[in-house]
Design a protein around this nucleic acid. Structure first.
Length: 712
DNA sequence: CGCACTAGACTTTTT
DNA sequence: GTCTAGTGCG
């Protein structure tokens, strides 16, 4: 099969420009994943490079998995061993092999998630009798790791930070723990301190590919730059319009940095959109050009025509949900599936009113958010049990489960256990043997060890799911969670789900011992999130704009488009506002065929009903690009009014009075310019038209009456 | 140690 | 308004 057969010229160029630094600006729906996977396949098949010499990093497990799946179907090879992974699991994999070059860490290190890490901070604050908010300090610790120019002004806070930060590091070293940030940092540190190791990996990775480049932070950039230093075959794909994670340290500036660091880089723009209708793209282009600082490209639709996006301003948030649900039911009647619909919002709190209404109408829905599967308490408990089963010296896991279920093992017993452990140089688990106290706690302690020892003994004879079952039964875990009737069934469901993960693991790793299977599985379990997408197969999706990135739906509802929600209240700078606008762009570009923008005049917030002003983003959109279907819309348009709420620090440019241009243009028109070639009209204001030209010209504001322009 | 009450949050969070 | 985490008392 010809790999390049189904690619457009720009995509083909991106696939075949294998040597040297390349940056691809890939707009929404432009076939970015296709380019990435085809490029990898091309390097393997056409250049004859062995797969393990290629490194591809993404941000989500889902993206990594999708890439692997696509490559394996393109080339019919086993991709499970390939270096296609998230930044974090790439680092975990390297560290697993190399971390012992940085004692006292050992290759059995445990990756702790946000919750564990926060708990560690809490413990430290308590120990030091400091009355600070754990979340705040945790945030500082993380910021210090991720932001290079990090500083704290308040000297008291600085002292606290320095102390807690030090203790945090010490504790991590003591207990062999790495948090998410550490994975990246320690890998960089490893490479900096051990040039030989770095050199090994530089040689290893002849070709490096980075997905979602606009979301990389300074450290991730450095890490990739380090690795690419030898071969310089660094290929980055991103979309500056979809940079919406700056609060997580993502640096849109990395795009400029790349251009400066690799002067001979090749820039490729993917501007053809295969996802959305012209009408939806027009709206998307129309909103994103309001960001003055990042006009680089505009998406050209390749697809069919569709209905105009619709705007509905409801009387109340209830009314808004009814509108949305009715549109969904209407669509279903026309033959659409539940999974064709997505309700998107800026903040999770908006989902509730929609959930209620969906339940009432018996519409199946899935909502992502809250805890990911592997972050749930019962899953983390089971994971800790399994860890303790394979590694008796995992004191961290020991402490997690020793009183789960409750075994009446209090501080006293734990203290003396600690004593014994440090005296004899044993892990806490083995110290139980030498514990001599009596009482209910003491006998529970012995029982705890006996149960685990028993299970460990017959581990190789039991299928993995049965090992889990034994744990749930024999430790008394199920009985414990039964006490809370409300959550019992949910939790057992989750454990069953986990059981099927174990089953999959067993099938995946045939031919090794159960012990080794568990060891492999447990290693980076904390880096996994939702493992299963099948639930959402037949349901309406409720999601934040952030979580929707990378997804597409036939019909999208962007709801609660109200000032103070979207854009939110905490928008302080122009940069922040531009990011909000990009979020809006991401939302719009999720839609393939139909798009609804809705908001409500009255919404319950913080206990009271508030009057809500329509989002400025609605006002910024040219009116002919959407249809206002609000009640009474014809007589009085509620949009395009000025914004006067006190909190709004930004004023939208007042529309200049429109004079009729002698040649009239409308958005979506294709024009030709003598100097810039063919372009697409993305906005019209009086005689001034805003036109997007193909690279390298970009978006320009022009006088529509100028003789060098003609309609085509 | 466990439950009941209260204070605080109420933006996004790929790992 | 409503959920959660944390505390304080029995």
């Amino acid at each position: 099969m010809d790999l390049l057969a189904n690619l457009n010229p720009a995509q083909r160029l991106a696939v075949t420009s294998t040597e040297g630094p390349v940056m691809v600006m890939a707009g929404a729906g432009s076939g970015k994943t296709k380019v990435l996977t085809t490029r990898i396949s091309y390097i393997i098949k056409e250049l004859g490079i062995i797969p393990s010499k290629i490194l591809a990093v993404t941000f989500t497990n889902k993206a990594a998995k999708e890439m692997k799946d696509r490559i394996s179907s393109m080339l019919d090879i086993n991709t499970s061993f390939m270096w296609v992974s998230t930044f974090h699991s790439f680092c975990a994999r390297v560290l697993r092999m190399e971390i012992e070059a940085m004692p006292p860490y050992t290759k059995r290190f445990v990756i702790i998630d946000e919750e564990d890490s926060l708990k560690l901070v809490k413990d430290i604050l308590k120990e030091c009798e400091l009355e600070y908010k754990p979340k705040e300090i945790k945030h500082l610790i993380s910021k210090n790791k991720n932001f290079k120019n990090f500083s704290i002004k308040d000297p008291r806070l600085l002292d606290v930070f320095l102390l807690v930060n030090k203790k945090y590091e010490d504790r991590c070293k003591e207990e062999n723990l790495l948090d998410f940030d550490d994975l990246i940092i320690k890998t960089i540190e490893l490479f900096e301190k051990n040039p030989k190791i770095l050199e090994y990996y530089q040689n290893q990775f002849e070709y490096i590919l980075v997905d979602e480049f606009q979301d990389t932070n300074a450290l991730q950039y450095d890490l990739m730059a380090m690795l690419a230093k030898k071969h310089k075959n660094l290929f980055v794909v991103g979309d500056d319009f979809q940079s919406i994670y700056s609060f997580r340290g993502a640096k849109i500036e990395n795009i400029n940095k790349f251009q400066e660091d690799y002067k001979d880089y090749k820039l490729i723009l993917l501007e053809e959109n295969y996802r959305s209708t012209t009408q939806i793209l027009n709206l998307a282009n129309n909103i994103i050009i309001k960001n003055p600082n990042q006009i680089k490209k505009v998406m050209f639709s390749n697809k069919k025509e569709g209905p105009l996006p619709k705007y509905y301003r409801a009387m109340s948030s209830y009314d808004e949900t009814v509108f949305v649900i009715n549109k969904i039911l209407e669509g279903i009647r026309k033959g659409k599936d539940y999974k064709d619909f997505a309700i998107m919002y800026r903040a999770n709190s908006i989902s509730r009113s929609f959930e209620d209404q969906l339940v009432k109408n018996k519409i199946p829905y899935t909502i992502y958010g809250g805890l990911s599967f592997f972050a749930r308490a019962e899953i983390k408990d089971m994971t800790a049990y399994l860890r303790l089963l394979v590694h008796k010296d995992d004191d961290y896991s020991f402490k997690r489960v020793i009183n789960m279920p409750k075994r009446k093992i209090g501080a006293k017993i734990l203290d003396s256990l600690n004593m014994i452990a440090s005296e004899k140089g044993l892990p806490l688990y083995d110290a139980i043997e030498y514990y001599t106290g009596s009482g209910i706690g003491a006998s529970n302690l012995k029982e705890f060890k006996k149960v685990l020892d028993d299970i460990r003994e017959k581990m190789e004879d039991l299928p993995l799911p049965l090992i889990l079952k034994e744990l749930v039964d024999k430790t008394g875990y199920e009985e414990e969670i039964k006490k809370d009737e409300d959550t019992y069934l949910d939790r057992m469901d989750n454990i069953k789900e986990f059981s099927s993960v174990l089953k999959e693991t067993e099938e995946e790793y045939e031919g090794i011992t159960h012990f080794e299977m568990l060891e492999n599985l447990l290693f980076d379990l904390s880096l996994r999130s939702e493992h299963d997408d099948s639930k959402s197969d037949e349901s309406v999706r409720l999601t934040t704009f952030h979580q929707a990135k990378g997804l597409e739906f036939d019909t999208v509802f962007m709801v609660a488009m109200e000032e103070s929600i979207f854009p939110g209240l905490n928008v302080e700078s122009n940069q922040d506002m531009e990011e909000e606008r990009r979020i809006c762009y991401v939302g719009i570009t999720r839609a393939k065929n139909e798009l609804y923008l809705t908001n409500a005049e009255n919404r319950m917030r913080f206990g009271t009903t508030e009057y809500m002003v329509p989002s400025r983003f609605i006002g910024e959109m040219d009116k002919e690009l959407y249809q206002n279907v609000s009640r009474g819309a014809k007589t009085k348009s509620p949009v395009n009014q000025g914004y006067s709420i006190a909190k709004a620090k930004f004023t939208v440019k007042k529309e200049e009075p429109k004079e009729a241009p002698s040649v009239s243009y409308s958005i979506g028109d294709k024009i030709n310019h003598k100097a810039f070639g063919d372009g697409l009209v993305v906005a019209v204001s009086g005689t001034t038209i805003t036109v997007a030209f193909k690279a390298p010209f970009g978006v320009k504001q022009l006088n529509g009456n100028h003789p060098s322009i003609r309609k085509i």
